[in-house]
């Protein structure tokens, strides 16, 4: 077997194992949450008998291990179960977790994708230029701007952008309300301000890591060799330094993209964007355990998947790992 295939299989199986461990943790954490779903739904005045009957109806009376195994078994068949919030509804009218999470997940992925497509190339380009003109005015300006944008809370950036580009200058929508029928272009237009906010939040990390990784390599003997071949500074950086800098850069990109999937609830709330983050917060307060579990699992998959991709890119871009002796 080619070593790269073996490494790939190793990493993928490791990821699956991690995911399994995470699913246990998610399950245990939710078990440990204070409060009782049945009494939250039925109200303070519900009699113990009614609570017990309700718990039996939705299976909450069974031991945790059994519930975990059933939950996991259903998950593997693609069945995330029913939302507890609709548990009181007549048979056939329950809402499945999938029907709640699915559209929200699409929205989240759409916003994350939009931001990634804009932010990643911009960060790389700014990082390369900053390394090329290091310690010059351009470098300082880029560093100052990105550091400022990262230091300010994201809701503040969001409101500032809204104030200037939606209220004072009515160029963009201030609210990013979309539903399944919204056209693609209309979607992009409505998502402009939240996307811009997130771009400003994540560009700094990626750009600074690109710059630092490249500058770190400029002292290496092979960069001196390249300079003494009479190559232009731009070619030295792009052709000789960058290919050796991918590993740290893709790792930071992965962490930032994962943040776009799991950590943008504040921006969703500000722009009233129907994403997964908001759904999870709502479900936690409603004690809607299956939905919370599904959201947490989606977040874990995003994190593990993106880091897996980052590892693979790091291997593929390094001939020493790709073609071991």
């Amino acid at each position: 077997m080619h070593p790269i295939v073996r490494t790939l299989l190793q990493r993928v199986s490791l990821s699956v194992a991690t995911l399994l461990a995470v699913s246990v943790i998610i399950f245990l954490m939710i078990e440990a949450l204070p409060g009782n779903f049945a009494s939250a739904i039925l109200g303070q005045s519900a009699t113990p008998e009614r609570v017990a009957a309700f718990e039996r109806q939705i299976g909450l009376d069974r031991p945790p291990v059994e519930r975990y195994v059933v939950w996991l078994g259903n998950l593997l068949q693609g069945d995330f179960g029913n939302s507890l919030a609709s548990a009181g509804s007549p048979v056939g009218h329950e809402r499945t977790v999938m029907s709640l999470v699915g559209p929200r997940l699409k929205n989240t992925m759409f916003l994350a994708g939009l931001v990634a497509v804009v932010a990643v190339p911009i960060s790389l380009a700014l990082g390369l230029l900053a390394a090329l003109y290091r310690n010059g005015i351009f470098d300082r300006l880029v560093n100052l701007t990105t550091l400022t944008s990262i230091s300010v809370p994201e809701f503040f950036i969001a409101y500032i952008l809204m104030l200037f580009f939606a209220v004072r200058l009515p160029w963009f929508h201030s609210l990013a309300t979309v539903n399944t029928d919204t056209e693609l272009l209309e979607r992009v237009a409505r998502c402009t301000l939240p996307a811009l906010t997130l771009v400003l939040v994540i560009v700094a990390h990626m750009m600074r890591m690109t710059r630092a990784s490249i500058i770190n390599l400029l002292a290496s003997p092979y960069v001196e060799t390249a300079r003494l071949k009479g190559l232009s500074p731009a070619r030295v950086i792009v052709h000789h330094a960058l290919p050796n800098a991918w590993a740290p850069i893709v790792n930071v990109i992965a962490v930032n993209l994962a943040y776009l999937v799991v950590g943008v609830v504040v921006v969703e709330v500000v722009f009233v964007y129907p994403g997964v983050g908001q759904l999870m917060v709502d479900s936690v307060s409603a004690r809607d355990i299956p939905v919370v579990q599904a959201c947490a699992l989606v977040f874990a998959i995003a994190y593990i998947g993106l880091n897996l991709i980052a590892d693979l890119v790091a291997i593929i871009t390094n001939p020493r790992l790709l073609r071991p002796r």
Partner: peptide, 13 residues
Amino acid sequence: YVAQSAAAAFNPA
């Protein structure tokens, strides 16, 4: 220029 350590002076990528 031929450097002292070719292992370091060749670009590994």
